[in-house]
Design a protein around this nucleic acid. Structure first.
Length: 611
DNA sequence: GCAAGGTC
């Protein structure tokens, strides 16, 4: 008997199906000489400080540097405090029973660092000695699964991957647990002041943006606007330069040759420039982009969207939600035409789905190399039936995006007209010539272009037009907006760096803060600690959050770059570098940050009393 | 009472 262990039940079921195994038992599926079982993500975690004798939160315990880390069954919160999760305990018993009676283990956890760690923690916790092989596939189609089983890798091929995962896990514990206790203790031990490699840089981003905005001094400036008429069709143009004073703007306004002051044909067309623009469809959704859209359009929090999607996934309506990929492989793409055909009767999208069934599909979102553990979020095509309002909304975002992604480019024509009347004025216009993918939701660029004319009349160079109106516009410079959950999620992907280019952003994914599966919970943690709060859609730091930020802002633990530095070292470990050096550096850093925080937190003491 | 990571 061989046992196959997957990261989650859905994958185990899929594998069993391909093998034709169908005897359902408690916690596994049996058949054809195999047993298919599963974890539920991490069943085991690094044991808490008290398991090493560090009782209470005391300065003399710090820094806590366990000689050898222990593993403990994942805990859940109950009214009696933290207790072992009974479902986890039960599943571990099943896995132990299967490990004991099997001849070989096939590791089918997700093909990545954490997937490896999930299995190894179970294997070592159960003190298992059975041989194991690794299934390494990045797509769940029958073909990919069969191919993967024909091509199982020796388990030891992934020892270095485990090493890097293990280092990540222990390092986060060392830095996070010690820094948290150190700051909490030195600030008077009144409340939990948590710190960590991911949450603290995230807090820093929110605080620094808030302070930047609060301290922003707006500058007033003036523009001159004119309205022109071409055979009765009116359009607006704005001065090409801004003016610091109202007087300067007034002087320019006075020079405008408008009708009211007896000038006809006072606007001279200096140039007309028309450009065709192609806008490719957006990529398919990954979890983060979906959370951003749901926050923007419906105001859902990242956590709510994740919950809704998980629900849709469990109802088998959408594919795996915690994905970081916005692409699908060619094998999945082959199933897309049938999938689209399932939505031809959809009340909102039916027309576009029907149209697409007759078209060659856009392949922008098809790239097997960019599919990591999981592909982009797609509907499964199962009949949805009645859904609650929020589920329907998120489901429609998934379906709608699928139709957009495989749709035609949107073709636009942008026009720029320069008009002279005393000074130069510019009028911009954009006309959609072929909506393409934009016809799915029928909404144009949300916020953009309040100064754009939707359409401009046809004018030619050196033509003269009447100026029917003129005015001075008073404007102010604006600070960068506060973070919303949508903009924060986007910023976390690139460590707070503003990168608009979609392809470039993608290349930076590896060095982002947190992972798709954890970002919602990072935001929730900061809220639970009362570091930040929600004000409408904005994430706003509290006094407490700002006080913590003030203590840590110049330290490494508050820098997003820390994750980048770790990732570089972890990748070296994965390709065979020694773990000893990295562990020593982490231990050193743990000692340093603990000392620093034990000294620094006293400044928080008084602030927290006021809070 | 703590991290970050996974998932029901």
């Amino acid at each position: 008997m061989k046992i196959v262990i997957a990261e989650k039940p859905s994958v185990a079921r899929e594998l069993a199906k391909v093998f034709g195994a169908n005897q359902k038992k408690a916690g596994y599926i049996e058949g054809k000489g195999y047993s298919f079982t599963w974890a539920f993500g991490h069943l085991l975690q690094l044991a808490p400080p008290q398991d090493y004798g560090f009782y209470g939160w005391k300065q003399q315990n710090l820094p806590m540097l366990p000689q050898k880390f222990k593993l403990a069954i994942r805990k859940i919160k109950t009214k009696d405090g933290m207790v072992e999760d009974p479902a986890v305990r039960k599943q571990l018993d099943v896995i132990k029973m299967l490990f004991d009676e099997c001849t070989e283990i096939i590791v089918a956890t997700d093909a990545g660092r954490e997937g490896e760690l999930i299995f190894r923690y179970i294997y070592y916790y159960l003190k298992c000695k059975k041989p194991f092989k690794r299934l390494w596939i990045s797509s769940q189609t029958d073909e990919a699964i069969k191919g993967g089983f024909r091509n199982l890798k020796p388990g030891t091929d992934y020892d270095t991957l485990f090493n890097s995962a293990h280092c990540r896990s222990e390092s986060d514990w060392l830095v996070g647990m010690n820094a948290t206790q150190a700051l909490s203790i030195s600030a008077g031990n009144k409340s939990v002041l948590s710190l960590g490699r991911v949450q603290t840089p995230t807090l820093a981003m929110i605080c620094s943006r808030y302070l930047e905005s609060k301290n922003f001094v707006p500058e007033i400036y003036f523009q001159v606007a004119i309205q022109l008429s071409k055979e009765g069709q009116l359009f607006r143009a704005i001065s090409t330069v801004n003016f610091k004073s109202k007087e300067a703007a007034q002087a320019i306004l006075d020079q405008v040759l408008d009708l009211a002051n007896g000038h006809s044909l006072g606007g001279h067309i200096k140039s007309v420039e028309a450009k065709a623009k192609k806008e490719p469809p957006p990529l398919l959704h990954d979890l983060s982009s979906l959370q951003q859209e749901a926050n923007r359009k419906k105001g859902y929090t990242a956590d709510q969207t994740l919950g809704i999607l998980q629900n849709l996934y469990e109802s088998k309506l959408v594919s795996y939600p915690r994905t970081g990929s916005r692409f699908i492989g060619d094998d999945v793409f082959a199933t897309v035409p049938d999938l689209i055909a399932k939505f031809t009767n959809h009340p909102q999208f039916g027309k576009q789905a029907t149209f697409l069934t007759t078209q060659k599909l856009n392949k922008r979102s098809v790239n097997a190399k960019k599919v990591t553990d999981h592909h982009a979020v797609l509907p499964t095509g199962e009949n949805a039936g009645y859904l609650s309002e929020d589920k329907q909304a998120v489901y429609d975002m998934v379906v709608g995006r699928m139709l957009e992604a495989f749709h035609k480019e949107c073709l636009k024509e942008t026009t720029k007209i320069i008009i002279t009347s005393g000074t130069d004025f510019v009028a911009n216009g954009t006309v959609i010539q072929s909506a393409g993918w934009r016809s799915v939701f029928n909404d144009d660029d949300d916020e953009k272009k309040d100064e754009d004319n939707a359409t401009l009349p046809k004018v030619i160079k050196d033509e003269n037009l009447d100026i029917t109106n003129k005015a001075i516009l008073e404007k102010q410079t604006k600070p960068k907006p506060l973070y919303t959950e949508a903009t924060l999620l986007k910023a976390l992907e690139t460590c707070g760096k503003d990168i608009e280019d979609e392809e470039l952003r993608y290349a930076m994914k590896e060095s982002g803060l947190g992972t798709p599966a954890t970002r919602a919970s990072i935001i929730e943690t900061l809220i639970k600690r009362e570091y930040i709060g929600r004000e409408k859609k904005n994430l706003v730091p509290s006094k407490k959050g700002l006080a913590v930020y003030d203590v840590v802002k110049d330290k490494k633990i508050a820098q997003a770059e820390l994750t980048g530095q770790w990732e570089k070292r972890l990748e070296e470990i994965r390709s065979g570098a020694s773990v000893k050096d990295f562990k020593a550096e982490i231990a050193d850093y743990t000692k340093t940050i603990t000392q620093e925080l034990l000294a620094a937190g006293t400044s928080l003491y008084n602030v927290l009393k006021e809070v």
